[in-house]
Design a protein around this nucleic acid. Structure first.
Lengths: 131, 131
DNA sequence: ACAGAGGTTCACACTGGCGTGAACGCAGAG
DNA sequence: CTCTGCGTTCACGCCAGTGTGAACCTCTGT
């Protein structure tokens, strides 16, 4: 199974698949003509990566999760730990974004938004807070 | 005012300030010895950038906002437009993160988290959804 | 006058997660 | 046999900086 087939089956772009090989996440065989040759197991691993990345895990976390997935003697405790700290990081990120959004929303409401140059948004960003 | 002084005054790392010059966001004078020499106006601009970046605007959006800030004949309409679409983008990002968090939270609750290798989190990521 | 500490300069490499493009090889159709 | 469309490799670009290192400048103490 060559790279474009693997791309269709896994849902990842071919470029991404080659990148994952470059950084050692997967090691497909090579056919006689030099083409990458993906096994069903490789596809399974690619799908795993796609899903883990979709859940926001970093490449490094994916590496750990893959290692745990392949480790028959793993403790589910370890997986849970990775997932927990990732959830915490996501929560932190959400809080940051919500703070930004609240500030911006307030500024947008304060801005009349017409042809005049007066603009509370710019004034606030510039630190020229009057009133 | 040299770069480390400008860093203290603006709250940005010196390295970031030099980077902003490299990409054309600010153009400080040079002293006779070749050192960068920041005016009060430059500091003001750096603080503007810090605040705009803190609100999540991209460098390119910051460039636009700076241009509008310096344009005495600007329409507040234009600024509001940039801010609005940024708020939309933030909202989109928050929704994505919340979806991730919900999925992960569900999986974490399903995982017993002990020394046994059985782990619903990995099974889900791998697509081995039983039950 | 000179040593040493610390500030400043530039240039380059590196990050994550790919995207893009060149230059080439290989497979199947006509 | 040639054409087209895949595949391959390599190299560079992107964002928004951060880290490293050599060389140069400035200040302070003796």
């Amino acid at each position: 199974m060559n790279v474009s087939h693997a791309a269709r089956r896994s849902g990842l772009p071919a470029k991404t698949i080659r990148y994952y090989e470059e950084i050692g996440l997967i090691r497909p065989d090579r056919a006689a003509n030099g083409y990458r040759d993906y096994s069903a197991d490789d596809i399974h691993r690619l799908a795993f990566l796609k899903r883990a990345r979709g859940l926001g895990f970093s490449i490094d976390e994916c590496r750990q999760l893959m290692a745990l997935y392949g480790d028959r003697g793993r403790a589910s405790h370890d997986v849970r730990q990775i997932a927990r700290s990732h959830v915490d990081a996501i929560g932190e990120k959400i809080r940051e974004l919500e703070t930004m959004r609240a500030t911006l929303t307030r500024l947008i409401h304060a801005c009349h938004g017409d042809e005049r140059p007066d603009c509370p948004i710019l004034d606030d960003i510039a630190g020229d807070v009057r009133h």
